[in-house]
Deep mutational scan, measured.
Amino acid sequence: MKVIFLKDVKGKGKKGEIKNVADGYARNFLFKQGLAIEATPANLKALE
């Protein structure tokens, strides 16, 4: 799953980066902790 990092995550990505991560890791950790959001077209446009 492609995500946009909202904060730096050690070993995974830095704020503003778009990367592929495992679906479960994204849903169960990154999204719940507020560290990333899904890289949807609307979210990508908002990032610009």
Rank of each mutant, 00 (worst) to 15 (best):
M1R: 08
M1S: 06
M1L: 14
M1P: 04
M1E: 05
K2Q: 14
K2Y: 15
V3R: 00
V3A: 01
V3P: 01
I4V: 10
I4K: 03
I4W: 03
I4M: 09
F5G: 00
L6A: 02
L6S: 02
L6P: 00
K7T: 12
D8N: 10
V9L: 06
V9W: 04
K10I: 13
G11K: 05
G11I: 01
G11T: 05
G11N: 09
G11L: 04
K12Q: 15
K12D: 08
G13S: 05
G13P: 00
G13H: 13
K14Q: 11
K14L: 12
K14G: 06
G16W: 10
G16H: 09
G16F: 10
G16R: 03
E17L: 03
E17N: 04
E17P: 00
E17F: 03
E17Q: 12
K19V: 12
K19H: 10
N20Q: 14
V21F: 08
V21A: 03
V21G: 00
A22Q: 13
A22S: 15
A22R: 14
D23E: 15
G24F: 14
G24S: 15
G24H: 15
Y25V: 08
Y25D: 07
A26M: 10
A26E: 11
R27Y: 12
R27W: 12
N28E: 15
N28Q: 11
F29T: 07
L30I: 02
L30Q: 00
F31V: 09
F31K: 03
F31M: 10
F31R: 01
K32T: 13
K32M: 12
K32E: 11
K32R: 09
K32H: 09
K32Q: 12
K32Y: 08
G34I: 03
G34K: 09
G34A: 07
G34N: 13
L35Q: 04
L35W: 11
I37Q: 06
E38S: 06
E38F: 05
A39H: 06
T40L: 04
A42Y: 06
N43Q: 06
L44A: 03
L44E: 05
L44I: 13
L44S: 04
K45T: 05
K45Q: 14
A46S: 10
L47W: 15
L47T: 09
L47A: 08
E48T: 11
E48N: 07
E48V: 11
E48K: 08
E48A: 15
